[in-house]
Simulated assay, not measured.
Amino acid sequence: MKNEYQNEVRIIGGKFKGKKLTVNEAQGLRPTPARVRETVFSWLKDSLNNASVLDLFAGSGALGIEAYSRGAKKVELVDLNKDNIKSINECIKNFNDNNIRAINADAIEYLKKCNTHFDVVFIDPPYALNIYESVLTLLNERNLIDENSLLYVEMRNGTNQSVVGYEIIKSENAGNSKYTLWKKSSLLF
């Protein structure tokens, strides 16, 4: 199935502004548009400096690499598609930095084995997976995030996803997508 995006996206801010990233044709891959990324990174601007970032379902790597460009200290980009990881690795090899890694793995299996704390997590899976609750539950159960961590979750427009232990603090729609910012809930359940 051919996607509706061109074969590349550009980093829109930070030290790698203008850098092109390859977008492979893969079922379910929908790179986050520049105008959505601009909004998301304005939400996150104060949280990225020296942050540890996880980009699950990385696809083109645009969200994780954009975070790195804007001051994140450590970034892990996880994707199951080997071609996506190959393209991301081609891009990040030019950074000559061991603090940004592309990992070819299933997101759930990665989270089950991970022991790293993350300040910012991007969760943008193919919509058909319907995997949000599993991912958010694992992040919380494995203590991979804390009450100060921020989670970007993108889902199909019209979806009303809620997960025990979390609250949505920002939400907007663009085309077929609903993009949201989550954090651990301050309410006790």
Rank of each mutant, 00 (worst) to 15 (best):
K93P: 00
R142C: 06
R70Q: 15
D119K: 09
A67G: 08
N94K: 14
A107D: 11
L54C: 11
Y166I: 07
S52D: 13
N50H: 10
A62F: 03
P125K: 01
Q161Y: 13
E172A: 11
W43T: 05
A51L: 08
S149E: 11
N148T: 13
E167N: 03
T39L: 08
L151Y: 02
K178F: 01
G64V: 12
T116S: 15
Y179N: 04
T159V: 02
D55C: 08
V120W: 12
N130F: 09
V75L: 10
D97N: 15
N104S: 13
V135N: 02
N94Y: 14
V153L: 15
E90D: 13
L111T: 01
Y166P: 02
V164R: 12
D106N: 15
N81D: 15
V78M: 06
I92A: 08
P125C: 00
V135Y: 00
I88H: 02
I85Y: 09
K184L: 15
T39I: 13
M155R: 12
L44C: 03
G61W: 08
G64W: 11
F95I: 09
A102R: 04
K170Y: 01
A67M: 07
L111H: 02
E90V: 00
K73H: 10
K45C: 04
I169C: 04
T137W: 00
L44W: 02
E66Q: 14
N98Q: 12
G71C: 10
L80T: 11
I103H: 05
N84R: 07
V163R: 02
M155T: 14
I108D: 01
H117A: 13
I88F: 00
K112I: 05
E66V: 05
I123M: 07
I85T: 08
P126R: 03
N99K: 11
I145N: 07
Y132Q: 14
Y110S: 00
K170E: 10
L63W: 07
T39K: 12
H117R: 13
Y110D: 02
R101K: 15
N115H: 09
D124P: 09
E109G: 04
N157E: 09
L44Q: 05
D146Y: 04
I123H: 03
Y110R: 01
G158K: 13
K73Y: 12
K183D: 08
R142D: 00
A174Y: 12
S60E: 10
F118H: 13
N98L: 05
G61S: 05
D106H: 10
F57R: 12
N94E: 15
N50C: 04
L150K: 14
L181E: 09
A174P: 00
E133V: 06
E90C: 04
N173H: 01
F122D: 03
L139C: 10
L56W: 04
S69I: 07
V75G: 06
N115Y: 01
